[in-house]
C-alpha cells in the first residue's frame, strides 16, 4: 500500500459518501444519473465477487463492503425512495451502448479466460466509462449542483491517484497491470474537461453551468 493508493481509496470513499449524503439530506436525486450509479453498482458487484473467497486484509474487505453497500443504497434511493425526484428525461444516455461493447471486450482482452477474471476485466472496463451518462446528463441540463461537482471531482481524482500509484508500484515493486492502467487512463481523461470547469468555475465560487 502506498500513499497514492490510500488517498485514492479515500477520495473514492469521500465521493461515494458525498453522493449518498447529498441524496439523503436533500431527499432528492435531481441532476444525478441513475444509469451511472447502476453501472457503478455493477462494477463493484463484478469486481468483488472474491470478497468471501479471497481475503487480502481487513482494510480491503471493509472497503469492499462499504463500496457495495453504498452503491446499492444509492441506486435504491434513486429508483425507489426518491424516485419522484429522478430526472429521467435528462438521463438518456444509452447505457447498453457501453455495457455490451465493454462485455465483448472483456471476453477478448483479458489476462486469463476464466469467469472470475473476465468479470474482473469487465468491471475494470465498465468503470472507465460508467461516468459518461452522468457527464452527458450535465451537458443536457447545462448545469450541476455544487455538491454534485464535488462528488465528481473526488471520483475523478481517485483514479488519477491510482495512475500515480501504478507508476509507484512499477518502479518500487516491478508490478503493473496494463488492463487496469489503460482503462484508468481512459477513465481519467474523460474527466479532463470537467476538471477544467471545476477548477476554473467551482473553485472560484461560481456555479458550474455549461454554455447551453
Amino acid at each position: 500500500m502506498n500513499v497514492f493508493r490510500l488517498t485514492g481509496d479515500l477520495s473514492h470513499l469521500v465521493a461515494i459518501i458525498l453522493l449518498l449524503l447529498k441524496i439523503w439530506k436533500t431527499r432528492s436525486c435531481a441532476g444525478i444519473s441513475g444509469k451511472s450509479q447502476v453501472m457503478f453498482a455493477l462494477v463493484f458487484t463484478t469486481r468483488y465477487l472474491d470478497l468471501f473467497t479471497n481475503f487480502i486484509s481487513p482494510y480491503n474487505s471493509v472497503m469492499k463492503v462499504i463500496y457495495l453497500g453504498c452503491s446499492y443504497a444509492t441506486v435504491y434511493m434513486i429508483y425507489m425512495k426518491f424516485k419522484a425526484s429522478y430526472d429521467g428525461n435528462h438521463d438518456t444516455f444509452r447505457a447498453e451502448f457501453l455495457i455490451i461493447p465493454v462485455g465483448g471486450l472483456a471476453f477478448l482482452v483479458n489476462h486469463e479466460f476464466t469467469p472470475l477474471e473476465i468479470l474482473w476485466t469487465f468491471s475494470i472496463y465498465l468503470e472507465s466509462v460508467a461516468i459518461l451518462p452522468q457527464l452527458f446528463m450535465i451537458t443536457k441540463t447545462g448545469e450541476a449542483e455544487t455538491i454534485t461537482t464535488h462528488y465528481l471531482f473526488a471520483l475523478g481524482l481517485y483514479r488519477a491517484l491510482y495512475l500515480i500509484n501504478w507508476i509507484w508500484r512499477y518502479y518500487f515493486e516491478g508490478f503493473f497491470d496494463l488492463i487496469a492502467i489503460v482503462a484508468g487512463c481512459v477513465q481519467t481523461i474523460l474527466y479532463c474537461d470537467f476538471f477544467y470547469l471545476y477548477i476554473t468555475k467551482v473553485l472560484h465560487g461560481k456555479k458550474l453551468s455549461l454554455p447551453a
Partner: peptide, 10 residues
C-alpha cells in the same frame, strides 16, 4: 495462494 498482484487493489 498469493492473489494475483493486481487483485490486492480495490
Amino acid at each position: 495462494e498469493e492473489p494475483a498482484a493486481g487483485k490486492d487493489e480495490l
